[in-house]
Design a protein around this nucleic acid. Sequence first.
DNA 1: TCCAAAAATTGGACCGTATCAATTTTAAAA
DNA 2: TTTTAAAATTGATACGGTCCAATTTTTGGA
Lengths: 243, 243
Amino acid sequence: MMTELVYRRVMRDLKKRILNGEFTTKKLPDERSLSATYQVSRSTMKRAMEILVDQGIIFKKRGAGTFINPLYLKDRSAFRYEGKNLGITDSFQANGKPTKSRLLDYRVIPATAELQQELFLTESDFVYEIKRLRLVADKPVIIETGYIPIKILPTLTPAVAQSSIFSYVQDVQGQTVNRAFLSIHVQPSTAEDQDLLHLKPIEPVGVMSGIFFLDDGTPFEVSTMRLHYRDLKYGTFVNLNED
Amino acid sequence: MMTELVYRRVMRDLKKRILNGEFTTKKLPDERSLSATYQVSRSTMKRAMEILVDQGIIFKKRGAGTFINPLYLKDRSAFRYEGKNLGITDSFQANGKPTKSRLLDYRVIPATAELQQELFLTESDFVYEIKRLRLVADKPVIIETGYIPIKILPTLTPAVAQSSIFSYVQDVQGQTVNRAFLSIHVQPSTAEDQDLLHLKPIEPVGVMSGIFFLDDGTPFEVSTMRLHYRDLKYGTFVNLNED
DNA sequence: TCCAAAAATTGGACCGTATCAATTTTAAAA
DNA sequence: TTTTAAAATTGATACGGTCCAATTTTTGGA
């Protein structure tokens, strides 16, 4: 069992205290005092607080102090924007939706030059090529083509590929897929798109492609998802001051 | 003029070097060497690199090293809605081509139910409705509609609305817009879309909408951009398991 | 040659310090 | 009382260090 990291413990506790309304003034104690009460260094305290800042729960003003975002307490559900954009999270994680999956293709091929690049492989490496059609309520929604290095998942079978590969990874390897680099765009549809996704010839198709990483940073899968444009929904928080 | 922060200088330089292809092996020197060459502490080096990790440009593997995300270098799209350039309200760049902005509409209206939700307003609140057409090389590319509460920016004028609202906020209120919730989808086009963006009736339109927040968490603006679907491109780094 | 153990490498967590900048508070002056 | 200047507060940046965990490389023995 992994011992919980200090800054996460502090972060969680502080968050809990905020939600419990322990800070009636809407102002938190200063960093130095907080780090003293938690018996951690100020750097760790800052790290914990920074996460809450990113979540929009608190904000800091140099020279003045740290304050609780009143809107957060007022209506926390409004801060959970996830409800609006089930688009992608759904296809990442198997969260209880009535989705089915049909295996269109499943084979092992040598890694192409492009795949070698993207998954950090060599010429001698092989990958699974997995093509699936995802159905929601028996309607085809996503055509997904994914490539996974054999050496990462030597025990993969078609049966597994048909259901959730990600949870399989978690079971077998104890690792989670939790980061991805995604690129989203829309392009003219192919005949196959039109056929499977019920698109008219002139209608375009939505494409989400990206690399998925394991906990430890290993590139795990390269995947392209093609979907009806009406299903292309994506929402995210963006920090604007990072350039 | 503010002297540039050390970690930002290092971050920018490293980013530049990566994009220039200086690290052919797709592997960066280790943190300790890098901090030595940049003459900064390891903590500062980590801070600089962490930003690039968040941007999806590099990723790290403990014990192994730091690597360049191969997808990042490839597929650089026409528009990059990243960082500051995420300019729904403000500056967005298009490969150095000259962009113009035409004010289509500017009025004050009562906040609709939806706006009340998104901007935390009440029935008695009013908002500016600002509609602009953005042109790249004299061709209309984006139809943008934004809503800003009067009580946040009582002094806004059409002249300002045509140029940069964000920097205006900074000047007048000393606040920055530094976070946004951005959502992307595609929907059937309206007659106006078809007209302005040269879409055929059956072709859909790309929509990017965002809620922008000030430092203190106040929602500052709701904005919607409608654009030709071929221009709808977005790259992002996703973290799935956050508390 | 091959394999397992040991060593070196590399990123992660945490600590503590010094200095600075923005803001608020206090004290002094008008 | 009001205004102004100094002092204290508070978060931000930057430094450098220790220890640890994951991975890779080297080494030594079978």
